[in-house]
Design a protein around this nucleic acid. Structure first.
Length: 463
RNA sequence: GGCGCCAUCGUCUAGUGGCCUAGGACACAGGGCUUUCAUCCCUGUAAUCAUGGGUUCGAAUCCCAUUGGCGUCACCA
């Protein structure tokens, strides 16, 4: 595999909500590509929509990246020589290039009524799409500088891209090949909003160029704005880096992965007790496959084998069931008992009741093959009232077990008592389980009790 | 609705003209192990490769059309 030099890739999340699993998917591919070629993985915060800004969202994005170990080389928090890395701190840069575009005749000032801004249009059947333009035009700003510094006077002005009439724009998607658009189909995009902030399209083109991004790896929903970007690049006299549009993750019904049908919030996975490395492994299976058809591999191996051109353009359904399996596999095969203990301590840092069980080697060992998520642990060890329990029978069982001498408290002795008890009372194993755990099934009971010790076991039967 | 992208078991996928009467994984079913439940092992069900036309001695693989799914058409990203 040949190394590509000066690889610089980026993800460009906007702080408008919780960290999305799709962002991590993008981050994984970008990160792997950067690391493979000794390049840089950059996080640029695209906070140009002040109305959707969510306090704390930026921090949450970085927390998520840290959790997955997809740590960036350059970002607002890390700095770097191409900063600032937050678009709200780069406004004067966008203003400069907006002015260049105006001067060169590729953009113009347009007057809109404020109330008309940001309305999503109806594209059903015959409704025609037209850009609303107010005809009674008041004074026009003389320059971007003028528009910004006299924002009161020009509060309804924007800078909009001028679109050539009926020209073909041929764009290149590295995963799909050449795609031709006609300029008449392209929306003359607003580039600079009336609040002086750029739209995504101006911001992304200017920043990707200035930050010397070498390869653009982004989600498929940007594909139709590619021609816009290509035009902007050529107007500015810049060359466009190769672009790869990766398929978006889908719900089981094939719609774009959404909160409504699936779990999109990274925080949900953390709270359920998924392992970040298992999620990464699973994500690596979507849209990409290991050259030897391996299903289980760590980040290092993914980086080694990953190649951009092997990404499939077809959108995959995100299957939580398979993720669960993968997570269980990581718990039982990739984690030592000690490592599992650490993860559990971390995970249950606020739930003191499970602490003694986490400390208990025997219990941990028994639980290890029975967990798909860290969250399953408490269901395995704690009492959960699911079954009806016969109080008298429970007392009888306790009585039988109390007879065992302290020094003979081991799983064989306990099981011997069980056997007698079951034949005497005409009950089966599950009944014993429910008396001890509240559920019909669970950890092997004699082993569980032996690991807990006589005192604790008898206590549990007394409750 | 215009434009664009995509299309192999239910799902993730292998497959780049003959090795494919299509392989693996998840899920599902059955069996073995077993003191419950799991783990582990074995077996099985499951794709006429969306459909219809070509090209070719030969197509899941190339071409065209159709259908379907999705995306996009905001002063959101």
């Amino acid at each position: 595999m040949e190394k590509i030099s000066n690889v610089r890739v980026r993800i460009a999340p906007s702080p408008t909500g919780f960290p999305h699993i799709g962002t991590i998917y993008q981050a994984l591919f970008n990160f792997a590509f950067a690391k493979k070629h000794g390049g840089k993985f950059i996080v640029r915060i695209e906070d140009t929509d002040r109305t959707r800004f969510v306090e704390g969202a930026e921090e949450a994005i970085f927390q998520a990246l840290d959790w997955f170990g997809l740590v960036e080389d350059e970002s607002p928090r890390k700095g770097g020589e191409f900063g600032p890395y937050k678009q709200s701190e780069r406004l004067s840069i966008y203003h400069k290039y907006a002015q260049v575009l105006i001067d060169e005749g590729h953009a113009e000032f347009v007057y809109y009524k404020k109330e008309e801004a940001g309305q999503k249009k109806d594209y059903s059947k015959d409704s025609e799409v037209k850009v609303e333009k107010n005809n009674s035009v008041p004074d026009q700003p003389k320059s971007v500088e003028d528009m910004i510094s006299n924002s009161d006077k020009f509060s309804d002005w924007v800078v909009r891209m001028k679109m050539p009439k009926d020209e073909e724009v041929v764009v290149d998607d590295e995963l799909r090949g050449k795609i031709t658009f006609n300029t008449s189909e392209i929306n003359p995009q607003v580039l600079l909003k009336s609040d002086g902030y750029p739209t995504y399209h101006l911001g992304v083109v200017v920043d990707d160029h200035l930050m010397e991004i070498s390869h653009v790896l982004r989600a498929e929903e940007w594909l139709s704005s590619l021609p816009k970007h290509k035009l902007l690049y050529s107007y500015l006299g810049w060359s466009m880096p190769p672009v790869f549009h990766t398929a978006t993750l889908r719900n089981p019904d094939k719609s774009k992965l959404s909160k409504r049908h699936g779990h999109t919030n990274v925080e949900w996975y953390r709270l359920e007790g998924f392992l970040p490395e298992a999620i990464l492994n699973y994500l690596g299976l979507l849209g990409w496959s290991h050259p030897e058809e391996k299903e289980v591999f760590d980040l290092a191996e993914f980086i080694e084998k990953f190649d951009l051109k092997d990404i499939r353009p077809a959108p995959p359904v995100f299957d939580v069931v398979k993720l669960m399996w993968m997570n269980g596999l990581y718990i039982r095969e990739k984690l030592s008992l000690e490592q599992l203990r650490e993860r559990l301590f971390d995970f249950y840092s606020t739930l003191r009741e499970v602490e003694p069980y986490i400390k208990n080697d025997g219990v941990l060992e028994l639980a290890k093959t029975r967990m798909e998520t860290l969250g399953d642990f408490k269901k395995l060890v704690l009492w959960s009232p699911e079954e009806e329990v016969d109080k008298n029978l429970k007392a009888d069982l306790r009585g039988s077990l109390e007879i065992i001498e302290d020094k003979n408290w081991n799983k064989d002795e306990i099981f011997a008592v069980f056997k007698n008890f079951m034949s005497e009372k005409q009950v089966k194993m599950p009944v014993l389980y429910s008396m001890f755990t509240g559920r019909k099934h669970g950890l092997p009971l004699p082993d569980f009790m032996a690991a807990l010790g006589k005192k604790e076991s008898i206590e549990r039967l007394s409750q």
